[in-house]
Design a protein around this nucleic acid. Structure first.
Lengths: 344, 344
DNA sequence: ATGAAAGCGCTAACAA
DNA sequence: TTGTTAGCGCTTTCAT
């Protein structure tokens, strides 16, 4: 894997490495003819600067690290596509890591990315992360970090989220308006920002519509739906309640499909017996049986805004004294899975 | 973002950098007491070697690059999970890039990964790649590459695939056995290995069952299903044939869901009017309307085997004089979308 | 058993 | 306008 270096060019052309270096960066102090000579030769030999050497020198890498729970999930893969689209245009490379909802892996990935000198970090917290020291420490040491979707309250930096409260409120209200009385909520661990906010929206909608909140209708899945059995148990418990729900509002991709699978296994008719609304970006919502009503997040745009903020932070570190939290809108797309009781 | 270096340790302990370096690598020539001193101090200061410096020195990075068409696809995300699981245990990091089915981006990603000194490459070709020079060149220069799933015939190296021919044969035969006569095939560009092999299996099954092959029943999507309109046009053309198909065998995740969407839009009943079998690893096959019959690939295992081969190539470059192509088995999972005509 | 110095590829301060 | 040199963090050869 030999590659041509500045030294090779210098030797071949009888120049010094610094002259070559300067010529390649089109420095004003270099004689146009020398420049031309160097550039043409470099071009011809297909010279590429060694980014490793540059990173070692400058302690930066023109790359940003992304740590998300998992990529096998439409919300997150759209997020990544949004991130890549912007980063790419601004000359940054994107390095993707999955935490697989594990705190340890999140920490390990973080350390690795830092040691690889990424210029900044884009994070969506794992569902098992409660200790934020690994990020706080880095921020204090000056590494730009932007959080998105699953963000920590305890850390002051730019954040990009959706209005989880109102997305959730809308979904719940929609279920109420279509005649549902016992609306359950299947969600992630309570200490995730998205969980708390979505739960709050759900509660508020119930309250505003004169339905008493009942804690036994809320089930938390500590692995965010990744562990199938946990999912199954939760839904099963709902079904075995003295008064089983007539609707379930699920808080994520995994939880939604997991829930539907359990209902299907139990031969429960959707929406006749139980209506479903999912907080999900699943691409085949339309093709499901029945087509799924979904609270959809502008994932692409979230990714784009997050990189945008991050790169601004990277390139103008001093300028930022106040951090912003951008809150985008979700959209409720109504399909058959939550059709009104009266219409059935 | 200051980090402690060997130099810092040396200074603090009144030693030379080389002694510290040796002590940390537990060299036999270092006095046990000095070793202990150094190690404890390093531990206490949370010293971590700078991988960039190591890469610069050794021209390797203990990391492998992965280039796949896209991650928003269950087959590929499972592949990645398989790759990560093994690589992680063997101390390698995995850097993921998407070609988005674009030849240019595939080349750009390749160059970047090489310049970042990855120790090896794991590739699944983009659907628009016909020129393989960028890989051939690297291989000649000694960079280990393993291909998986979408592999090139023209390059001699380890490859991991599934038995596309027989997977396809089985699927087609299954459709025939369940009473279908006009079986269409929706697939990717013909120059992809998987396309050719799946097409061959499809043809052979038709022939063996006395059905004449009809080219007008085969539609190629040059973007592998990524471009929705292309997908739509292809299916629409099938539907407008003088004798429209009574079954469609689709060759990938995207093509399958795209096809189902078009049929749904046209209010065509599956499987009554048209049966569907998809070559797909989509996770919600069971939840679709109707549940989807699928040829499933052991994606995790493919990923695992591929890294295994790659790392072997990286760590014992000389040993390999003969390359192997591992061919794993697909499984046909029959669900309602292809139920027998007689059973409808 | 320990240290000094060179080198991986690149840039920039300083010299000429 | 061009060259020399030092240094980013680390390992390793060659002294000592």
């Amino acid at each position: 894997m030999e590659t041509i270096t500045i030294k090779d060019i210098a030797k071949a052309l009888g120049l010094s490495t610094s002259t070559v270096s300067r010529a390649l960066r089109n420095s004003y102090e270099i004689n146009p003819e020398t420049k031309k000579l160097v550039m043409e030769y470099a071009e011809r030999m297909n010279y590429r600067p060694n980014p490793i050497a540059l990173s070692l020198r400058d302690s930066k890498s023109k790359s940003i690290g992304v740590i998300i729970p998992e990529i096998a999930n439409h919300f997150f893969s759209q997020l990544i596509n949004g991130i890549e689209s912007i980063a790419y245009n601004l000359g940054y490379h994107v390095v993707i890591f999955q935490s697989h909802e594990s705190y340890e892996r999140e920490v390990a990935n973080t350390n690795y990315l830092v040691s690889r000198k990424v210029d900044g970090l884009l994070i969506s917290l794992s569902s098992l992360t409660t200790n934020l020291f690994h990020f706080q420490d880095l921020m204090e040491r000056g590494l730009p970090i932007v959080f998105l979707d699953r963000v920590p309250n305890e850390i002051e930096t730019h954040k990009v989220v959706v209005n989880n409260f109102s997305g959730s409120y809308q979904a719940t209200e929609h279920l109420i308006k279509s005649g549902r009385k016992r609306i359950a909520h299947l969600t992630s661990p309570i200490y995730l920002s998205i969980t708390a906010e979505r739960l709050a929206g759900y509660k508020q909608a119930l309250e505003d519509n004169g339905i008493a909140f009942d804690e036994s209708y809320v089930k938390y899945c500590y692995h965010g739906g990744k562990v199938v059995s946990e999912n199954e148990t939760a839904v099963q418990e709902m079904l075995e309640l003295p008064e089983p729900p007539d609707a379930i509002f699920t808080a994520s991709d995994r939880l939604t499909t997991g829930c539907m699978a359990v209902l299907q296994k139990n031969k429960i008719k959707i929406p006749e017996q139980i209506a479903i609304v999912g907080f999900t970006n699943i691409s085949v919502a339309e093709l499901l049986n029945p087509p799924l009503t979904a609270v959809v997040q502008p994932a692409m745009e979230m990714g784009q805004q997050a990189v945008d903020l991050l790169i601004r932070l990277i390139e103008h570190p001093q300028k930022t004294n106040v951090f912003e939290t951008r809150s985008l809108k979700t959209s409720l797309i109504i399909r058959e899975s939550s059709i009104g009781k009266q219409e059935i």
